[in-house]
């Protein structure tokens, strides 16, 4: 399977290990990812809270480039980029006038013909769980994982085509296939506040705290995410949360593809486990006898 790949800005920086793991998993499963040439930022929340047209035009340029290169499917690993791309495609599909307007603004034809998929859906829905299972050589047996979806992979459901906006299961099923034990918990689709934690730290940190607390209370050994910003908030900010709330959280957080790469027999050196803030070493030691560490 061949996809245009839109990594987005985070996967080039704070989410770099997500990018590495995505490519390892793609290689193993025989998925070809071709990066969209000269892609730009999708504008994220900043664009869509500022100007409607700008919020559609920035993603449209990337999607138009992908179309011009003949791609029928675009894979988007970041939840925020995914939501912006999907909203753009839906808006353009719904209005021929807007299609003309957007094409004028970006100086390229954008027909909104290609299918846009989150990388989670590429792996969890398009690839086939049986095919994935064949590649598991190191099942993550006994690892209790809270699959965290956050907002933008699931909502709004008419845009994301999520399997269930309140209780999505696509990541849970993937975790099961690689031998881990996805847990039932309450904060699967609660918001982590995304970038709000920068301008309003008191508010953002409470949201992150509540997610960590809920995962811990259900006995999660680790949290799995499918978004670089969710990851950054839950991982990098645990120390800050502990300082603010007097808690003692040390919950390893993984991109779901990192856990898959582990189960496919890659070692932690193959991807970016050392880049995480919360160490997963003792967890991996216990789980797979340190083979991953």
């Amino acid at each position: 399977m061949k996809y245009a790949y839109y990594p987005g800005c985070s996967l080039d920086a704070t989410g770099i290990e997500y990018d590495i793991a995505n490519k390892l998993v793609a290689r193993t499963l025989g998925i070809e990812l071709v990066e969209i040439p000269d892609w730009n930022c999708c504008g994220a929340t900043s664009a869509h809270t500022t100007n409607h047209l700008l919020a559609l035009a920035l993603p449209a340029r990337n999607l138009a480039i992908a179309e011009a290169h003949g791609f029928e499917q675009v894979a988007v690993p970041c939840a925020a980029c995914f939501a912006r791309c999907k909203k753009t495609a839906a808006a353009v599909q719904a209005s021929p006038d807007l299609q003309v307007q957007i094409s004028e603004v970006i100086g390229m034809t954008y027909a909104a013909k290609s299918e846009i998929l989150s990388y989670l859906d590429v792996i969890g829905k398009k690839t086939g769980l049986d095919h994935i299972k064949k590649h598991v050589v190191q099942p993550l047996t006994g690892l209790k994982i809270a699959a965290y979806y956050g907002c933008l992979l699931v909502r709004p459901v008419d845009i994301t085509q999520s399997d269930d906006p309140e209780n999505p299961m696509v990541m849970d099923r993937l975790l099961q296939v690689i031998g881990a034990e996805p847990i039932a918990w309450d904060y699967k689709t609660e918001c982590c506040g995304a970038s709000q934690v920068v301008p309003v730290p008191q508010l953002g940190k409470k949201l992150i705290h509540d997610i960590l607390k809920n995962a811990a209370s259900y006995g999660a050994d680790a949290i799995a995410t499918a978004c670089p910003l969710c990851m950054l908030n839950l991982d990098m900010r645990q120390k800050q949360i502990n300082a603010m709330f007097g808690t003692q959280f040390h919950i390893p957080v993984f991109h779901f593809t990192e856990l898959m790469a582990l189960s496919f027999g890659y070692s932690a050196q193959d991807f970016g486990l050392a880049k995480h803030f919360e160490s997963a070493e003792s967890l991996l030691e216990r789980m797979i006898g340190g083979k991953g560490a």
Binding site: C151, L152, R155, E166, T189, C191, A194, Q196
Partner: peptide, 11 residues
């Protein structure tokens, strides 16, 4: 301003 556009309300 505080709305994080998480879409929980609309959903």
């Amino acid at each position: 301003w505080l709305c994080a556009a998480c879409d929980t309300c609309s959903t």
